[in-house]
């Protein structure tokens, strides 16, 4: 019950196999619906409903663009944070924290999931991009 799931997931449409990040409520390719894991209405997971497969975002990725942000929003006391936008080998793209000294567009990176923020005592985990 109190196990912390540190993964960040992409969601695969059970009907056509399309991967999504973040999870949509319907597949952008074939329109198949995704129901939440908890009950949202009586009999909410209709008969024959196939749940969406969760795939952790992991492995290597390519840096598409990046920035060093010096004006952080309230809630962040760091002087600056580095951010990157990457593409994974499975085609999924994501934004996250960048932790490399000399970033370069096109460079290969690895992903890991670490604490990115603590908000009113709640820890948020998120993607960090690091050198392979």
């Amino acid at each position: 019950m109190y196990k912390i799931d540190k993964n960040v997931y992409a969601y695969r449409c059970p009907k056509c196999g399309q991967l999504h990040y973040p999870a949509p409520m319907r597949c952008k390719k074939c329109g198949y619906r995704r129901y939440p894991e908890q009950e949202i209405e009586p009999n909410f997971q209709k008969e024959g409903y196939k749940p969406w497969e969760k795939t952790p975002l992991k492995g290597s990725c390519k840096l598409l663009t990046y920035t060093r942000l010096w004006n952080l929003p309230i809630g962040f006391d760091q002087r600056y944070l580095d951010f990157g936008l990457v593409e994974f080998e499975n085609g999924i793209r994501a934004s996250g924290r960048l932790l490399v000294d000399k970033p370069k567009i096109g460079m290969k990176l690895n992903v890991r999931v670490e604490k990115i923020k603590e908000f009113y005592g709640k820890v948020c985990y998120g993607l960090q991009f690091v050198k392979p």
């Binding site: 663009t65 920035t67 004006n71 951010f83 934004s95 996250g96 948020c124 998120g126």
Partner: peptide, 12 residues
């Protein structure tokens, strides 16, 4: 949650 802001998106 990452701390991304509109200026950060514009910068990227």
């Amino acid at each position: 949650p990452y701390g991304l802001t509109l200026p950060a998106f514009a910068a990227m």
